[in-house]
């Protein structure tokens, strides 16, 4: 696949997770030539013999490997359609994690009341829902500039942090499903060029 379908990527991120979504984003791409100075994040299990694994505990738990191709010429990372496809995967992951967070907040109490009903929390949920809608409606023009591409992924990172805060310390445990949000940020930081 050379032209990732954004709706499919979002669905993959939501239903099958970050690694499955990333596989779709990278399908048909030669990572060795695409990564910034040979650095890539790929679904685990696809390590070419000449690539050097970069240990990353959290990414490994999420089924993603960081690799470095020694001597590789500098690529541009993910741009255009693939940058948008990674954003779509991250939107799917974010939507799934927000639903999990809402479940979590519905059963947790503070001072005897469900946390989900507290105004500060309601506001935070509403802000993420708004951002998800806005990001889902964002232009899908393949000619997205590096500035706009980085900014879009930063908005996803910020929204992900809002969701991580809803899980509180539980979302900071490596085995927690919210790990996907931490790794989603790392994957974008590896693949998306700086403006």
């Amino acid at each position: 696949m050379n032209d990732p379908d954004l709706g499919e990527c979002r669905e993959l991120g939501r239903e099958r997770g970050l690694a499955a979504g990333l596989a779709a984003v990278l399908d048909g791409l030669d990572p060795e030539t695409a990564g910034h100075r040979g650095l890539v994040a790929v679904p685990s299990g696809n390590c070419p013999a000449h690539a050097r694994p970069v240990p990353n505990h959290l990414a490994a738990l999420e089924g993603i490997s960081l690799l470095r191709f020694p001597g590789s010429a500098s690529g541009s990372g993910l741009t255009g359609r693939r940058l948008l496809a990674l954003a779509a995967v991250r939107i799917g992951v974010l939507g799934r994690m927000l639903a999990l967070a809402a479940d979590h907040l519905s059963v947790r109490t503070f001072g005897g009341s469900p946390i989900i009903g507290q105004q500060l929390v309601v506001g935070a949920v509403a802000d993420v829902v708004t951002e998800l809608e806005a990001l889902s409606a964002a232009p899908t023009d393949d000619a997205i500039t590096p500035e706009a591409g980085w900014a879009r992924h930063e908005r996803l990172t910020a929204a992900g942090w809002s969701v991580l805060q809803m899980f509180a310390a539980a979302g900071y445990i490596a085995e927690h499903p919210a790990r996907a949000l931490h790794v989603s940020t790392l994957v974008a930081d590896v693949w998306i060029g700086r403006p």
Partner: peptide, 30 residues
């Protein structure tokens, strides 16, 4: 976030403290 954005992506592995501190700093929230 600014630090990661200010540097080339390979700084995440060439300067591993960058990646570590970006994880560490989240802990203070909790």
């Amino acid at each position: 976030r600014w630090a990661i954005g200010a540097l080339d992506p390979v700084a995440l592995v060439d300067r591993p403290l960058l990646e570590k501190w970006a994880r560490d700093v989240l802990a203070f929230e909790f």
